[in-house]
């Protein structure tokens, strides 16, 4: 790495390194969009891993910040696997079924970026956890 000559160059390094830390600072943020991919045995068997990678890839492509992608265990809706849940502040959590690679990308672009739900893929609009 060459020596920095200007503050702009420092900012460039910061920008490049920010993605790395973004994953951590987003996790701490309270108004993040949380995407949960069901990754139990049935989910993995129906291709949840490919779906998850596609979602991550699309988020990076669209340059979206403040989105946290995590995985969760069996949601119980095995017939609809892979299942993806999207939780964003001020909106009810949305559960999408049969999310393949393409639908995963669609969720990122339509739901997360444009704020439009994918009506045809929703399983249950008001999916809530019972403590």
């Amino acid at each position: 790495m060459a020596k920095l000559k200007t503050v702009e160059e420092l900012k460039k390094i910061r920008q490049a390194a920010l993605d790395q830390l973004d994953l951590r600072s987003t996790a701490e943020s309270e108004d993040k969009v949380l995407v949960r991919v069901g990754m139990a045995t049935c989910g993995i068997a129906s291709g949840a891993r490919t779906t998850m990678k596609a979602i991550l890839d699309e988020i990076a492509k669209q340059g979206l910040a403040n989105v946290s992608v995590t995985q969760t265990g069996c949601i119980g809706y095995c017939a609809q696997e892979p299942v993806v849940e999207v939780i964003s502040k001020g909106m009810p959590s949305v559960l999408y079924g049969k999310v393949d690679e393409n639908r995963g990308r669609e969720i990122v672009i339509e739901h997360i970026k444009n704020g439009r739900l994918l009506q045809n893929a929703i399983i249950n609009k008001s999916f809530e956890n019972v403590e």
């Binding site: 503050v7 420092l10 390094i13 910061r14 490049a16 390194a17 920010l18 790395q20 830390l21």
Partner: peptide
């Protein structure tokens, strides 16, 4: 050092 810079490191010095 990149992680420190990402966490606003060396901005104060700049």
């Amino acid at each position: 050092i990149n992680e420190y810079i990402a966490a606003d490191g060396y901005q104060a010095l700049a």
